[in-house]
Design a protein around this nucleic acid. Structure first.
Lengths: 397, 397
DNA sequence: TTGTACGCGTTATCAC
DNA sequence: GTGATAACGCGTACAA
C-alpha cells in the first residue's frame, strides 16, 4: 500500500527531472512535448535526466491539466462470437492509431428489464415462446438497469467519447449521456437526436434475401432469432423479410444469438412435420446452429430445408453447406465509429448524422441450387431490379 | 475546443455542489464517499445538490488525489479468433466485478523483430519454410519494437496493473515494467523473476496427446503451427510431442495461427504422396484449416489422415469430423489473471508465483476410431498411466 | 530562452 | 459535525 505513485508506477515526478537537469519544470515540459522553444543544450540535459530517472508523466496529472483523457470507450453486450470482436478490432485499431487508449465495458447478461422482448408485426408484438427468455437471475426489476447506468457513468468519466452498441444501454442512460454533451456514437441503434448513429443496412438487404429465396421456389419460411429492442438490427431484418414474405414467414425466437440457441430452437422447429422450407436466421451463429440441428434430425441442407445467416463471419464460408448470408462490414463499422467519434471530440458538430453502411448478399449453397436470374425476374420483377446485389464467393477484404 | 471538462464531460465540480448545498467541499466529499461523519440533514442537502447538478466526480481529479486509477490493462496480440476473446471475457468479467475499468491494447502485427522464429529441437532451431514469415511491411529493424514499447508505456501510465500475453511485448519492455514495480501478470510467458506468470499446462498434455495417437497406430506425424518465442505455449506443445514421437514427427510452420494459414500449409503438406498419417496442430483454428485442406484434396479425416487441435474452441465440437483437441480453460485463465493482478495491486507479494492450469484431452472423431484402452497400454504403459486424462464430450462449463 | 506561479478537481488531515 | 487547506503531478500564461 505504498501506492501513492500514479505516475506510471515509477513515482518520479517532473520536479525531480527538473532538479536533476538544473532547469524548471516548465522547461522540462516544453522539452518533452515540443511546445515552446528550448535551447539545444538544455534539451539534451533534460532528455538525459528523463532517461536516467525513467520519467513518465503521470497520466492523471496530464489529464487534469490538459482537460482530456486521451482515451475512448466502447460498450458492447459481450465478446462471445465473432461479431462484436470484429467490430472491436476495427475500433481499437483506428482509436489506437489516433493516439488514444481504448476502455471497454461489457454489459453481459445484465438485463435492461424495462424492455419487452418480441418481434414487432405491424405495431403488434409477438411474445416469445420457447425457453424462458429472462436470462438473468430473478431479481428486482430495474436492477440490471441501474447497474449498467453506474458502469456507464464510471466509463463516461474516464474517456473523451463513447461508442455504444444498441440495446446495451437503457435509453434514459443514453439520454443522460447526450445531455452531458459527451461525444457519443451509437452503433445499430435507432436514430436519436443529439447522437451520431451508425449501422449496416438491414431492411433492403433482408428484402433482397427474402426475394432470392422466393426465387428458389420456397413458399414456407421461418425467421429464427432473438430480437431485443425495436429498431435494432434483427428487428429491421425481420421487418424486411416480413415485408416481402408476409404471412408465409413465421417468427421463431431463440434465447440468444448463439450457435447453441439456434441449435435448440431449430431442433424444435424442424422436428415437426410442417416444418418450413427455408429458415432465415437472424445471424450466422444461429444459422450454424440450425444447420447442426438439421443434421441431427437427418435432414439435408439445402435439399430438405434451406438455411440462411447474416454477417458473413469466417465460419460461414467454411460451414457445410457453405452458408448463404448477408455480409456486413464489421471491422469497418468499428473503424468508422472510431473516426466519427474522433471528429466529434475534435469539435465537429456532425450531430444528427446517421450513416448506413452497405451490405452484400452472399449466395452460397445453404439456400439451394442457384436458379437462373431470368427465372427470378418472373416472380418479382421490380423488387429484384431495385435491390438484389449478389456476389459469388468474392473474398472479403 | 471547450473541452476543459474532464469531469465526466459535465463540467460540474465539487465546489459548485458545495456552494449549492451551503457546505464545504470536504463535507460533500465525505457525504458522497461515506468517509467521516456527516449529519443526516446535511447529507440530504448535499445529495440533493448532487442530484440537481448531475455531479460526477472528475475521474482525473480522483485518480490524482487517490493515487490510483481504478483501471487495469491487458495486452494481447489480436482479437481475431476465439482464444484471446475468451480470455478477455474472463478478464473483463472479474476486473469489472472488482470495480475497475479495463483498458485494452492490441499489438496486432507489430513485429517484435529481434526474435528469430522457428521450432526449437534440442537446442537447435529449425527455421521456417513455406511463406515468408515477416508479416509486416518491410522497415527498420526494431521499429515495431519501439512502437510497442511506447504503447505499453502509455498503457502502463493509466492503469494500476497489467496483464500481458507472452510474445506480445519485447522482453526488455517487460523488464522495464517489472523494474517500475507495476503489478504485472504474464500469461503463457516463460517464468520471469519479479513477475507472476500464469498458463495452461502444455508439455504433459502434448505427451498424452501424442501417446494417444500412437495408440491409434499412426507412425508418421506432422506438427503444424507457427511458433514464435521460446517458452510460449506452442513451443511447449511441440516439445511434449517431440519428446514422445521423436523423429517420427516433422515440424511444419504456418504463417499465423489462423484457419487460412492452417489451410494453406496443410494443402502443401497433404498434397504430397508421403504425407503424414496424423497432423498435430498447434491449435484448433489451424486444425480446422487442415481439415478443410484435406477435404479439398479429397482426403478423408480421419481415415486418410488424422487431425488434432488445441484449445477446444466452440467450433471444435461442431466441426466435421468433430475435432480431437486439448481443452484449456480460456475464460478461467483470464479470470485468474485478473484476480492475481488484483492481489498484487492490493499489496500481496506473490511475486515469483507461477501457476499452471490443468487441461483435458478431449477425444473426438478427427483422430480416428477410438481403440480400447488395453490396446494403448501395450504401447507405452508407464506414459499412459501417468498422464492420460480423457473425456468423451463432457460439456465445458 | 527560461522561470514563476496558478489552475485543473479531488482527497484527506487537521483544527475548530 | 464541519471547514480551511495542503497535497497530488502537470501544463501553461505571463513575466523576466
Amino acid at each position: 500500500m505504498d501506492g501513492r505513485d500514479v505516475s506510471a508506477a515509477s513515482g518520479v515526478t517532473i520536479y525531480e527531472v527538473a532538479r536533476r537537469a538544473g532547469v524548471s519544470i516548465a522547461t522540462v515540459s516544453r522539452a518533452l512535448r515540443g511546445t515552446g522553444p528550448v535551447a539545444g543544450a538544455t534539451r539534451e540535459r533534460v532528455l538525459r535526466a528523463v532517461e536516467e530517472l525513467r520519467f513518465t508523466p503521470s497520466r492523471a496529472g496530464v489529464s487534469l491539466a490538459e482537460g482530456r483523457h486521451a482515451a475512448n470507450g466502447i460498450v458492447f453486450p459481450n465478446l462471445s462470437g465473432p461479431y462484436f470482436a470484429e467490430v472491436l478490432i476495427g475500433y481499437e485499431e483506428v482509436t489506437s492509431e489516433l493516439g488514444r487508449s481504448v476502455v471497454i465495458l461489457s454489459t453481459k447478461g445484465r438485463d435492461l428489464s424495462t424492455k419487452e422482448r418480441g418481434l414487432s408485426v405491424k405495431g403488434r408484438r409477438l411474445s416469445a415462446h420457447g425457453p424462458d427468455l429472462s436470462l438473468n437471475e430473478p431479481g428486482l426489476p430495474g436492477q440490471g438497469h441501474d447497474a449498467i447506468r453506474d458502469l456507464v457513468r464510471e466509463l463516461a468519466g474516464r474517456v473523451d467519447g463513447l461508442v455504444v452498441f444498441g440495446s446495451t444501454v437503457p435509453d434514459d442512460v443514453i439520454d443522460e449521456l447526450v445531455a452531458s454533451r459527451l461525444p457519443l456514437v451509437l452503433i445499430s441503434h435507432a436514430e436519436r437526436p443529439g447522437a451520431v448513429t451508425l449501422r449496416s443496412e438491414n431492411v433492403s438487404s433482408a428484402r433482397a434475401l427474402a426475394t432470392h429465396l422466393l426465387g428458389h421456389g420456397y413458399r414456407t419460411f421461418a425467421f429464427l432469432g432473438a430480437p431485443y429492442a425495436t429498431g435494432d438490427d434483427v428487428d429491421l431484418r425481420w421487418q424486411g423479410v416480413h415485408e416481402v414474405l408476409g404471412d408465409a414467414v413465421q417468427p421463431v425466437l431463440t434465447a440468444e444469438y448463439t450457435v447453441e440457441s439456434g441449435y435448440e430452437a431449430a431442433l424444435r422447429l424442424l422436428g415437426t412435420r410442417d416444418r418450413p422450407e427455408a429458415v432465415i436466421c437472424s445471424d450466422d451463429e444461429v444459422a450454424l446452429g440450425a444447420i447442426l440441428a438439421a443434421e441431427e434430425l437427418g435432414l439435408s441442407v439445402p435439399d430438405d430445408v434451406a438455411v440462411t445467416g447474416w454477417d458473413d463471419i469466417m465460419a460461414a464460408r467454411h460451414a457445410r453447406p457453405a452458408l448463404t448470408t448477408v455480409r456486413q462490414p464489421m471491422r469497418e463499422l468499428g473503424a468508422r465509429a472510431a473516426r466519427a467519434l474522433d471528429e466529434l471530440i475534435a469539435g465537429a458538430s456532425l450531430e444528427d448524422s446517421h450513416r448506413t453502411l452497405d451490405t452484400e448478399l452472399i449466395i452460397r449453397s445453404s439456400c439451394g441450387q442457384h436458379p437462373h436470374e431470368p427465372h427470378l425476374q418472373e416472380l418479382n420483377p421490380q423488387e429484384l431490379n431495385r435491390q438484389a446485389r449478389h456476389a459469388e464467393e468474392s473474398h472479403p477484404r
